[in-house]
Design a binder for these strands. Structure first.
Lengths: 177, 177
DNA sequence: TCCTAATGTAAGTAATTACTTACATACATT
DNA sequence: AATGTATGTAAGTAATTACTTACATTAGGA
């Protein structure tokens, strides 16, 4: 049954999130209520299980949702909304993000799922429609930076004016020096 | 001789930067050209060696340099300079920062040397003189975010207007909505 | 009912690795 | 010369852990 396969992936995700790549196959098996040997029969080796599990969460949690700017909505409002949404999502997935970040930095993830990089690229892709009005490269960088520091340092105690900090400085020609 | 002790610390720093906490004591010993058992005679165990090594690099590379604002210099200029300096320093120490960040996220570092946190706090401390004019908490966060994303993503290809992005949005009363 | 595929049990293997112990050596101070 | 301190050599230990092998069990479809 493909059922057990999913049980295992689910458990693997949980355990890997908690302990990183160093989680043991025993941990995972017992969490999945499955014999350890079953992991190997289904996934050949730990690394493969890890990649499968990580890929599945990335697909589930970070796949790009297509977005359209409401036709009559001002640029700033749209972007502020996007920023807020992403930001909240990431905070919710904090443990997952921490793990992905850490493993990416350690070089345990292959290039094509280097988390901060793909996250940045997804943002870029999404911001592309605004290319002409906005410095999207630096905006995306700044967003990624904020997201990471939030995950690492916790949420800020003081309110921030998102538009002023993360949007308008990157909008061309506006409030220019 | 305290000489060997330093040799070992130096080697440990290098090896830990390269491989993280998972570096083996053999690695370190051979890099230090010292018998493995010497590590244990001097540092009791691996964790202690790790902490000693890390502490020493943190002291060496990230100790806070006291700064004074030139009396006649405008606020923005001072802060832009500080930002630029820190930023360049961190890029130089990129490998070290990556490792410290990764190990902090993994929870391998004790609270008092949780890297992003102490780095943030150092920034806060340094920015304190500007407290009245600047939202230093969010400024420091934004700086940390940028530094981390730079270390993780590499340096930006497009120039950025530092003052516009990292300084003025946090200065009170200026260009306010 | 029989066969097959999926799973479990249990034992084991081989590699790694932090850390120890016992003994030898070299060097410096007394 | 004697002694102590720092270091090396070599061997070993104990724990962990990814992964294997052999065999038993169960359940579903032909």
């Amino acid at each position: 049954m493909a059922d057990k396969t999913n049980q295992i992936i689910k458990a693997a995700v949980d355990v890997f999130i908690e302990k990183g790549y160093n989680a043991t196959t025993q941990d995972i098996a017992s969490k999945a209520q499955v014999a350890e040997v079953t992991l190997f029969r289904k996934f050949t080796n730990k690394q493969n299980l890890f990649l499968t599990a990580i890929q599945s969460t990335i697909d589930e949690h970070f796949s790009m949702k297509e977005r359209q700017q409401q036709t009559d909505e001002p640029l700033e409002k749209t972007l502020t909304l996007w920023f807020t949404e992403r930001s909240q999502m990431l905070i919710k997935k904090r443990a997952l993000v921490k793990m992905l970040l850490s493993e990416s930095l350690m070089g345990n993830l292959p290039e094509h799922i280097n988390f901060p990089v793909i996250f940045y690229q997804q943002l870029l892709e999404q911001l592309k429609p605004f290319e002409r009005q906005v410095d999207i490269e630096n905006m995306a960088r700044s967003w990624v930076g904020y997201f990471i520091s939030t995950v690492v340092l916790g949420t800020p105690t003081k309110d921030i004016d998102i538009a002023r900090i993360f949007i308008t400085p990157f909008v061309r020609g506006e409030a220019d020096a």
